[in-house]
Simulated assay, not measured.
Amino acid sequence: MGTPAPAEATSAGEVTSAAEAAVPATLPLKITNNSGRDDRLYIYDLGTSLTTGQQGWADVSGTFHPWPAGGNPPTPAPDASIPGPAAGQSATIRIPRFSGRIYFSYGEKLVFKLTTGGLVQPAVQNPSDPNRNILFNWSEYTLNDSGLWLNSTQVDMFSAPYAVGVQRSDGSTTSTGHLRPGGYNGVFNALRTQPGGWAGLIQSRADGTVLRALSPGHGLETGGLPSGVLDDYVSRVWQKYASTTLTVTPFADQPNTKYYGRVSGGVMNFTNGSGTVVTSFQKPDADSVFGCHKLLDAPNDAVRGPISRTLCAGFNRSTLLANPDQPDPTTANFYRDAVTNHYARIIHAQMADGKAYTFPFDDVGNQESLVHDSDPRQAYLTLDPFS
C-alpha cells in the first residue's frame, strides 16, 4: 500500500541546489540473493516517474519506459522483468526518480496487466489473481531531489523475507527489515497457534508450500479472519471514553498541539484547546482499523488526518485503554491486550530490530522499517534465507 512519503517542503523553493546536486538521476541498487533458493529470480522496478509524471517501468540501467495504453478487459503489460542474481550472488541495477515498487519473484515471472486507468498490481487476496500461486514480495521507494526513502513492507502481506539499506555519503550504511534467526517460520507458527482465526491469514499452494500471510484487512476480505475480531476491544474503548478524555498529540515536534476526544451519542468528538469540535469519528469496525480507512479515514490535512492516524495506531497496538495520552511512545505497552492486531504483534516480535510496516500508519512513533538519506550513494535489497 502506498510508497514511503518524503516530508513535505514548506515552500515551493525549499529544495536546495546542493540537495539537487547530491541526488543523481539514477541510483545504484545492489541486490543480494541470500535466500538459499535455487529458483530463478525476477526483479521489477515499477512506479510513477517523478520526472515525467507517467506510470511505467525502469530497465536494468534505470531507463524509464512508460506503459502503453491499457484496455477493458485488461491487456497484458510489456515484460518488465530483469533477471535477478542466483543464490549466493549479487547484481546491481539502477533505479530512477520514481515513486514505486521493487518487486521480486521466485521461479515464475509475475503477471501484470494494464487497464485504461493504468497498471493492475497483484492482489493475491483475490483467489482468481494470476499471481496467487507465485512466491513474491516487494519493497517500496521514493527517489527525488530530497533523497531516498526505501522500506520493507508487510502492509499487504508477509512473504519472502528481505531487508533494505542505504549507503550514505560518508560511506556508512544503515539497514532494516532483517528477521531474527528462525523468524520467517516463527511468524507462520505463531499465526497458526494464535486463537481467534488468525491462522486463516496463511495462504499456501495446493502442494502445501507456504506462500504468504495476508494482512488482517485482506484476511477480512477473504473470510480468513472473522469480521468481529476487534469488536470487543473497540467497544471497550468507546465505553471508556464516554466518561474519560482521550488526549491526542499528533505531532512530535508540536507538543502544544493537542486534541481532546470524548464519546457522546456513540460518536467520538474531538475538540481543540478552545473547545471547538474539529472532527468526529463513528465507532470503527475491524476493516476500518486494520486499513486505517473508511470510518478511520485520514485525509492529508492538518487536523483529521493526524488525529486519525494516531487513533489507528492506538487501535492496532491496543494502547488506547491503557493510556489516555496518545500516541503511546513505549513499545513495551504495544499489543498487550488479548484483542489486538496479532499479525502486527507477531511480525514486530520476529524482526531483528523490532521495526516493521505492518499497517498503514505503523510509522507513528517511528516503528516502521524504513531507511532514508538525503545524499544517498547506493541502495540495497537483500533477499534473506527462509529458514
Rank of each mutant, 00 (worst) to 15 (best):
D232M: 06
Q55H: 14
N131E: 08
G208C: 13
D337E: 14
Q154E: 15
F334W: 14
V15N: 04
V289N: 00
T276H: 14
T26E: 04
P255E: 09
P130Q: 02
H342G: 01
P195V: 03
Y380A: 10
A163K: 07
A58F: 08
L230I: 04
P376H: 11
Q254M: 11
P68Y: 09
Q125T: 11
V187C: 03
F334K: 09
L311E: 10
A86M: 03
S146M: 08
G100T: 10
L214C: 04
N323K: 07
T247F: 02
F64T: 04
F188T: 10
K355I: 03
L110G: 00
S17Y: 12
G84T: 00
N189P: 06
L119Y: 06
P4M: 13
S128Q: 12
K113I: 07
N333C: 05
N269P: 00
A356F: 08
K113H: 12
P255G: 05
S318K: 09
T245S: 11
G56Y: 03
K240F: 03
G186V: 05
K113Q: 14
L211T: 01
T16L: 11
T92C: 12
D207T: 12
A77Y: 10
P78L: 00
L295E: 15
V248R: 00
G365R: 13
N300V: 14
P127K: 04
Y44L: 02
G2C: 10
G186M: 06
N256T: 11
P68V: 10
N137W: 14
S61H: 09
N126C: 07
S35C: 12
N333W: 00
T16A: 07
P83Q: 03
G53Y: 07
T51S: 11
P181I: 04
G305T: 09
C312Y: 07
F98D: 12
D287W: 13
N272Y: 02
R304K: 15
T271W: 11
T51P: 02
S61W: 10
R236E: 14
G365Q: 14
T331F: 08
R168I: 03
Q194I: 03
S175V: 07
T10N: 04
D232E: 13
V15Q: 07
H65D: 01
I346C: 12
S152I: 09
G100K: 04
T176G: 05
P250M: 12
G314Q: 03
D384H: 02
S90Y: 08
H342Y: 12
A352Y: 08
T173F: 06
Q121W: 15
P284G: 05
D129R: 00
G117D: 14
G208H: 10
A86F: 06
S227E: 11
W198A: 03
L114H: 05
T276F: 11
A206L: 08
R336Y: 07
A86L: 11
L311C: 13
L201A: 10
P76T: 10
P161D: 00
I134G: 02
T75W: 00
Y42D: 01
V155H: 11
S369D: 03
K355R: 15
T92P: 12
I346T: 08
S274P: 01
M157A: 10
S387V: 10
P24Q: 05
L383M: 02
N33L: 08
M351E: 01
R205Q: 13
S369N: 02
S169C: 02
T209S: 12
T52L: 00
N341R: 06
A199W: 08
